[in-house]
Amino acid sequence: MTRALPCAVELHDLTKSFGDVLAVDEVSAVALPGEVTALLGPNGAGKTTTLRMLLGLVAPSSGTATFGGRRYDELTDPVRRVGAVLEASGCHPGRTPLDHLRILATASRLPKDAPTRVLAETGLAADARRRVGEFSLGMRQRLGLAAAMLGDPDVLVLDEPTNGLDPPGVRWLRGYVRRLADEGRTVLVSSHALSEVEQTADHVLVLAHGRLLRSSRLAALRAEAGVGSRVRTPDPDRLCAALQAAGHRFRRTEEGLAVDASPEEVGELAAAHGVVLHGLVATADLEQAFFRLIQESGSARRPASTEGAGS
């Protein structure tokens, strides 16, 4: 199914500084209808600031952000065009989700049945009359999503929507987001972990230190990623030292060490240093490509920032 008025999101030289902090630095990018576009970046990369500028909540220092060529505040019926879930957007704890959604629906002249429809869609129908103050983080996140879907919008903007969701919730969200894009909507979703969007995103925008490092198809990023490995060892410190000495990039994760080198190289290195391994698998996942991009940008930036400090 394609929608009548698909609406692309365009960022053009978008820039924002908060005093001395350059939060977003000349970001230009496009998110297309029918696709899930992931805005990826570590903490403080500028994702939230970018999305808030897009939605007219934060004024850009320069540049523009538009939906089908129009700024958010120029849209007629914005709620029917764009739905958004932002971190730190909330609900009065004394209200029920139904009251909260009714207030929003009233303000935007939406149909009376819209609140119940979106509550059902987001799996909150049974909790419609509880006070939001009693809600868990994940339920609030679903309520945020319900509010975003009230106007049945063409574009969805989600800022770290998996925050607080349990694994089934994350899976549900993936399917939901995918379906919305397949219906022809434009979905722009931010995340700090590539693994979260790996299964849903079509296009990836990598952001670090406010700058757009990459805009590419997920498939292209995957092809470039090359082979890496994931290692489990009871003695990570020694292995890390060995990896460092051999010039391999690595990173500690919950599942062990993610190393930017093939399993052969890692296995031989471990053997040479007498480090016991409990697990060694090849990973072609994107996490490494992402990780490398960000690290490279970090090292490329350091001289620039010292320069800035000196002047």
């Binding site: 939605l55 007219g56 909540l57 958010y72 505040d73 849209l75 914005p78 709620v79 764009v82 958004a84 932002l86 730190a88 957007s89 909330g90 609900c91 009065h92 909260h100 929003l104 303000a107 935007s108 509010a147």
Partner: peptide, 10 residues
């Protein structure tokens, strides 16, 4: 809630 208020009426 100011976020959703302003999203509804920018």
């Amino acid at each position: 809630t100011i976020t959703s208020t302003y999203l509804g009426e920018p």
